[in-house]
C-alpha cells in the first residue's frame, strides 16, 4: 500500500529513538554547506594560499630531484621556494596567510548559523527536542571550528601529505614525520578559539549582517589597528596583545616551534586565549536563553 494511504504509522520496536546526540548539528551544518555551490567556490578561493604552497612544494621537490638544483640564474631560487622539510615552510601559510581566508569563510558560514537560528525561530525547535543549550553550543562550536580548520590546518596537512607521496624517496617522510602532529595541534587550537568566538558573535544579533560586521571588527580591524598600525607607530610591542589574531599567532608559533613574529609573552597569550573561549561561552549561553513568550 502506498505510504500516503496508510495514515499515521507507529515506529517499530527496532526503530525507536536511541540516545540523542549533539553531533547531528555539525553534521547537518556541514551537509548544508556542501549542498551550497557558491560556498564551495568560496572555499576554493579561500585556500589559494594553500594551493600556492602546494605548487611551491612540488617545485622544491623537483629541485631536489634535479640533483643540486637548476643551473645558476635559471628557474626559481631555492630561497623563494623554501624547504618543505622545515616547519617554517608551512608556518607562514598557517599563521599569516590564513587571516583573510578565515575572515571571509567564517563570515559566510559560522557567523550566519546562530543568527539565522535566532531569526527563524529554530532555537525554539532545537530546545523543544532533547537538546540542552550546552549541547547546542557544543554542536555549533564544532561546526564553526571545522569551518575554520577547513581553511587553515586541513589544507596544509594535505599539502604535506601530497609532498610526502610525491617525494622521490622515503627521506622526506622520515625528516618531516613530526610536522603533521604539530600542524594538527595548532589547527585544533586556532579552530577551537576562532570557532567559539565566531559562534558567540553570531549569537549577539538575529541579523546576519550585524554578526559579520562584528566578526570583521573583532578579527581584522583590531589586528590592523593594534598589531599593525599602533604597534609600528609607537615602536612598542604591547598594543599587539589587543589583537585576537596576534594572540593566537603567538601561541600558534609556540605550538609549531617557530620563531615568534611578535615577541609577546607566551603564557600571557595562552591565558588571553583561554579568556576569549570562556567569555565566548558565557556570551553564547546568555544569548540562548529561551524566548519569553507570554501566551
Amino acid at each position: 500500500m502506498p505510504v500516503f494511504e496508510r495514515g499515521y504509522l507507529e515506529l517499530r520496536e527496532d526503530e525507536r529513538p536511541g540516545r540523542p546526540s549533539w553531533t547531528v548539528l555539525p553534521q547537518e551544518e556541514w551537509a548544508s554547506w556542501l549542498r551550497n555551490r557558491k560556498l564551495l567556490i568560496l572555499w576554493f578561493v579561500c585556500i589559494v594560499p594553500h594551493l600556492v604552497l602546494l605548487v611551491r612544494t612540488f617545485m622544491a621537490l623537483a629541485l631536489v630531484g634535479l640533483d643540486g638544483g637548476p643551473a645558476r640564474g635559471r628557474g626559481p631560487s631555492p630561497a623563494f621556494l623554501g624547504d618543505p622539510e622545515s616547519m617554517a615552510f608551512y608556518a607562514k601559510t598557517l599563521l599569516e596567510d590564513s587571516l583573510l581566508p578565515v575572515l571571509v569563510f567564517l563570515a559566510a558560514t559560522a557567523i550566519r548559523t546562530v543568527s539565522l537560528d535566532r531569526k527563524s525561530g529554530a532555537l525554539e525547535l532545537y530546545f523543544t527536542r532533547p537538546l540542552s543549550p550546552w549541547r547546542y553550543i557544543l554542536g555549533r562550536w564544532t561546526g564553526a571550528a571545522m569551518a575554520a580548520a577547513s581553511v587553515t590546518a586541513l589544507p596544509v596537512l594535505l599539502v604535506w601529505l601530497t609532498g610526502a607521496l610525491a617525494a622521490p624517496d622515503w627521506g622526506f617522510l622520515k625528516e618531516t614525520l613530526w610536522i603533521p602532529g604539530r600542524i594538527l595541534l595548532q589547527g585544533a587550537f586556532f579552530a577551537s578559539v576562532l570557532g567559539i568566538c565566531a559562534a558567540a558573535l553570531s549569537s549577539m544579533s538575529s541579523s546576519v549582517r550585524t554578526g559579520q560586521i562584528l566578526w570583521v571588527g573583532f578579527l581584522a580591524v583590531m589586528h590592523l589597528v593594534f598589531s599593525g598600525g599602533l604597534r609600528r607607530f609607537l615602536h612598542e610591542e604591547w598594543p599587539a596583545q589587543f589583537s585576537p589574531w596576534a594572540i593566537l599567532q603567538r601561541v600558534g608559533e609556540a605550538i609549531l616551534g617557530v620563531d615568534p613574529e611578535v615577541p609577546l609573552s607566551l603564557s600571557w597569550c595562552a591565558a588571553l586565549s583561554l579568556l576569549l573561549v570562556v567569555l565566548s561561552l558565557l556570551v553564547l549561553r546568555r544569548n540562548l536563553k529561551p524566548l519569553e513568550v507570554v501566551g
Binding site: 537560528d117 525561530g121 525554539e124 525547535l125 501566551g295
Partner: peptide
C-alpha cells in the same frame, strides 16, 4: 530532556530550520 524526548511539540508562530 527526558520529557522532551517523549513529547511532540507543535510550536506557535512561523518557526523553521533555515
Amino acid at each position: 530532556l527526558a520529557v522532551r524526548a517523549r513529547v511532540g511539540y507543535l510550536p506557535e508562530g512561523q518557526v523553521f530550520f533555515p
